[in-house]
């Protein structure tokens, strides 16, 4: 997986989380995964199709999700509140939307599908083509995991976009 595909997502996560939580964050850990992804708690997955294909998973432990959602909502939300899951979806939407805006302006054309919540324990297994990069962001509210598995679908678009 090329860094030029990943960097916009890291930058967007940094911007959205830092603004929403009103505190700085850092990348605590970064690893490549080929095995099926094991969800930590409340997870939202967004699929991309077009010149770039794949999926991004945003995943937070239930307690962290409640704390992050409370921060974004400006009011205390219990772990069981449906708004917590909504907040994780919206967070994923904002991070991915911001990253996609950067990639689109670089010449890549693709479609972002609406976020889907995951409640099962295991996520989709990565393949050789779509080896997943798992990033752990250390925030004041706890760790936020972003699992990115993307690949170029259209090599012509890759060449023209990178050369642009």
């Amino acid at each position: 997986m090329k860094m030029e595909l990943i960097q916009p997502f890291i930058n967007a996560a940094d911007a959205v989380l830092s603004q929403g939580l009103q505190s700085p964050m850092a990348i605590e850990n970064l690893s490549m995964e080929e095995e099926a992804y094991r969800f930590k708690g409340v997870a939202a997955m967004i699929e991309l199709s077009g010149d770039i294909e794949g999926r991004i998973i945003f995943d937070l432990a239930p307690k962290t999700a409640a704390r992050v959602a409370s921060h974004f909502a400006g009011t205390e939300l219990p772990e069981t509140d449906g708004l917590v899951r909504e907040a994780v979806c919206e967070l994923a939407n904002q991070v991915i939307g911001n990253a996609v805006a950067v990639l689109n302006d670089q010449g890549f054309k693709f479609r972002v599908h609406p976020p889907a919540l995951h409640t099962s324990e295991q996520g989709p297994k990565s393949t050789e083509d779509t080896e997943a990069l798992v990033l752990c962001f250390d925030t004041a509210d706890g760790p936020v995991f972003m699992n990115i598995a993307l690949r170029y679908h259209n090599p012509t678009a890759q060449a023209s976009a990178v050369g642009a």
Binding site: G97, N98, A101, V102, N104
Partner: peptide
């Protein structure tokens, strides 16, 4: 009001009648 604030989208929205565009997360 959207997170997908790329130029193509912004121009399309303005051409089709929107008055303005605000990027999410909303400040």
């Amino acid at each position: 009001v959207s997170s997908v604030g790329y130029q193509e989208n912004i121009v399309a929205a303005l051409q089709r009648g929107a008055r303005h565009f605000v990027q999410k997360p909303v400040k």
